[in-house]
Design a protein around this nucleic acid. Structure first.
Lengths: 196, 196
DNA sequence: GAGCAAGGAAACAGATCTGTTTCCCGATGC
DNA sequence: GCATCGGGAAACAGATCTGTTTCCTTGCTC
């Protein structure tokens, strides 16, 4: 008996999602076959299809987990650091830098998913839009807490910088874009407070 | 005899690249099979493989054409509009808005290509990095012409805004991000000149 | 120990993938 | 008229894709 089969079903499900997510992020969705996932996860095809009705459902589960992980880790990191709300706003980009430097960083999996499934799978596309809306809402909340003069406008601008830094880090393979984004963000934040 | 076969070989090659590019952008690279491309282009598989040794070579040709098109159309649009160099800098984002509103806009094909081939195909990855470097060089040239106090820093920041707007437009399906990016760009540009 | 349920291994089905090859038609040059 | 050649249609090869099914082993419960 293998070690993985000792785990309870819920853990096995999580393990599959984690393995699939890593392969999807690294190699892409279409390029990652079911066979590769089960080989890497050490489970049988039967087990995978007992947890997920289709590959699309597995992808959606992966996206949901990434969504939660962002809520639980990234947002938490941002909120626990920084003395005041304005520091936390700029801290977005410190957290981004840490994210870019993680070994398994291959860009934003939601952006990659949109590239492969925007037309083919409306549910996947929706999941990606929902994630981006959540990010924007989080940044907006920070802007409000910081007392920005036009929180919506500032949030949109910072969200663009965040997206741009993520994509640039992915393509270039360097986390340097995070520092550039932070510098630009500080300038934009300054503008939104000097008017007050 | 079909109409396409009346065209000279060079035209047929271009036609294939254009058709493939449209399908790659809309549906993704792995999801677009050779059969779909030749059906849409109205040529036989033999013809396709007489022009391109493999699908990867076709993808690289598509990326090269997009690279050229950006040079010839996008850059030209930016440079012909705007009275002075500073206007042209902001005009980047007007051109972006026009781009986002084109019917066939499905995001930056280079970003999508990186998502699918970053690990699998170093040549494709390089082509995408080259494109981003060209964009950055173009923005830097505009910054220098405008007389920015720190042209490199400003170029990096504007490039991030440009990437972020492109991705946001792709995911949201709206060109609104271009206006947000322009607003942020004007603020950043202002900072880089007030110091002078 | 008997029955039961979970899950691994692998065959299988049917579709699709990239890339090659064969055959044939039609246009063009001489 | 005839030879040549480009190219379309389609078969083909071999691999891979998603998803199903079968068989068998193993551990648990009673």
């Amino acid at each position: 008996m293998t070690r993985t089969s000792d785990l309870p079903a819920a853990s096995r499900r999580d393990h599959l999602i984690q393995t699939a997510g890593r392969l999807f992020a690294r190699d892409g969705f279409h390029a990652t076959g079911i066979d590769k996932i089960i080989l890497e996860a050490g489970v049988s095809k039967k087990t995978l299809y007992s947890h997920f009705r289709s590959k699309e459902e597995l992808i959606l589960a992966v996206l949901r987990v990434h969504d939660s992980a962002f809520r639980n880790h990234f947002m938490h990191d941002v909120e626990k650091n920084g003395r005041d709300a304005r520091d936390r706003l700029a801290g977005l980009f410190d957290a981004a830098e840490n994210w870019f430097e993680e070994p398994g960083f291959y860009g934003c999996i939601f952006i990659n998913a949109v590239g492969e499934y925007a037309q083919a799978s409306p549910p996947i596309r929706s999941a990606c839009q929902d994630f981006k809306n959540m990010m924007r809402a989080f940044i907006l909340k920070l802007c409000r807490e910081a007392g920005a003069s036009e929180p919506e406008a500032l949030a949109d601008e910072l969200a663009l910088l965040f997206e741009g830094a993520t994509v640039t880090a992915q393509v270039s393979g360097s986390s340097h874009a995070a520092r550039t984004a932070k510098r630009a963000a500080l300038a934009l934040i300054g503008e939104h407070f000097s008017r007050a």
